[in-house]
C-alpha cells in the first residue's frame, strides 16, 4: 500500500522534473545550434551543416579576444580588490565588539538592496569628478602623448580603474558578510597562540587566518566574479572606447547592428561569454546556501 503510494509520488516527481528540465533547457537549444550553423538565423532551426567559422570570427574579424581580455582584467581585478579589502574588513568585523559593528553590518545589507539603476546618474557625476582629479594628476607626471593611454588604465570614466572600483564596491557588502561569518568560525585560540609567538597582525593573517578562512574568501571571490562578470549596466555606462569594451557590451552591440546582425557569431560569442560564468557557478554552488543562510544564522 505504502510502497505503491510512494512510487506514484515518485512518478509525479519524475514527470514534474522532466517538464521543468525542458523548460530550463529549451531556450539554450537555439544558442547551441545557431553557433555552429552556417546559415544561423534568429530562430530555432536544424543546422544544415556544421561550421566553426563563428567561433573563429570572434578572434579574427571581430574584437572578441580583446573584449574577453578586458572582461577578465576588470572582473579579475574587481574580484581581487573585494577579496583583499573584504578579507581585511571581514576580519575586523569578526574580531571587534565595538558599538559600530551592528549598525555597520545592518547598513551594508541596505547597500545590497539598492538598485543599481537608482545610483547610476549620481555615480556618473562622482566618477567624473574623480576622473578630472586623476587626469590632472596624470598630466602632471606623464608626457602629453601618454595621458590618454594612461587614463585608459587609471581613469574613472572610460578607464579600467573606475570600473574595477565600482564593481568591487557594489559586491563588497556581500563579501564582508561572508568573510566575517567564516572568520567567526576560526577560534581565537590559534591567533592568541600566534600573538604569544610575537607575530604581528599581517603575519597572523597570512599564516593562520587566510588558510583557515580560505573557503570564505573563495566563496566571496566566486560570487563577486559571477556578479561582476554578468554586470551590464556599469560597463554600458562607464566604458566608451572600443579598445576597452567588455564582453557584455560587445555582445549587446553585436545584436544592435542595424540590418547587419550575424546570429551565428552572436551565439558563439554568447557561449564564450557564458562559459566562465558557468564554471564559476559550478564551483560556487555549495557556498550559496551558506551565504544566504549566513544572513539568518550569523
Amino acid at each position: 500500500m505504502v510502497i505503491r503510494k510512494f512510487s506514484r509520488a515518485q512518478a509525479t516527481s519524475y514527470g514534474f522534473l522532466f517538464l521543468l528540465t525542458i523548460f530550463c533547457l529549451l531556450p539554450f537549444l537555439w544558442v547551441f545550434l545557431a553557433s555552429v550553423d552556417p546559415n544561423a538565423r534568429q530562430f530555432l532551426q536544424l543546422p544544415q551543416g556544421l561550421t566553426e567559422t563563428h567561433f573563429v570570427k570572434i578572434f579574427t574579424t571581430e574584437n572578441g579576444g580583446r573584449w574577453f581580455f578586458n572582461s577578465l582584467v576588470v572582473v579579475g581585478c574587481a574580484t581581487a580588490v573585494v577579496v583583499v579589502v573584504g578579507g581585511l574588513g571581514g576580519y575586523a568585523l569578526s574580531r571587534t565588539n565595538a558599538w559600530w559593528k551592528r549598525p555597520f553590518l545592518y547598513a551594508i545589507i541596505l547597500v545590497r538592496v539598492l538598485p543599481p539603476t537608482a545610483l547610476i546618474v549620481p555615480l556618473y557625476k562622482v566618477m567624473l569628478t574623480a576622473n578630472n582629479v586623476m587626469r590632472g594628476f596624470v598630466q602632471s607626471i606623464v608626457p602629453a602623448d601618454w595621458v590618454r593611454p594612461t587614463m585608459q588604465i587609471v581613469g574613472f570614466v572610460d578607464g579600467y580603474l573606475g570600473l574595477i572600483l565600482v564593481m568591487a564596491a557594489l559586491q563588497l557588502p556581500l563579501a564582508l558578510w561572508i568573510i566575517k561569518t567564516f572568520f567567526d568560525l576560526v577560534p581565537k585560540d590559534y591567533e592568541e597562540a600566534a600573538i604569544m609567538d610575537g607575530a604581528n597582525v599581517f603575519q597572523r593573517i597570512r599564516r593562520i587566518l587566510v588558510p583557515l578562512a580560505l573557503p570564505g574568501l573563495g566563496a566571496a571571490a566566486l560570487l563577486t566574479f559571477i556578479a561582476a562578470w554578468g554586470d551590464f549596466l556599469m560597463p554600458l555606462t562607464f566604458i566608451s572606447s572600443a579598445e576597452l569594451q567588455l564582453l557584455p557590451i560587445g555582445l549587446f552591440r553585436a545584436f544592435l547592428r542595424v540590418n547587419d546582425v550575424d546570429y551565428g557569431f552572436l551565439c558563439a560569442l554568447a557561449l564564450l561569454y557564458t562559459l566562465p560564468a558557468i564554471i564559476a557557478f559550478s564551483y560556487s554552488r555549495r557556498f550559496l546556501v551558506q551565504t544566504f543562510a549566513g544572513g539568518v544564522k550569523g
Binding site: Y91, L114, V201
Partner: peptide, 16 residues
C-alpha cells in the same frame, strides 16, 4: 580593527 575596515569603508562611501 578600524584601520582594517577603512579601505572597504572608503569604497562604500565613495561609490555608494
Amino acid at each position: 580593527n578600524r584601520l582594517l575596515l577603512l579601505p572597504g569603508l572608503v569604497l562604500l562611501i565613495a561609490f555608494v
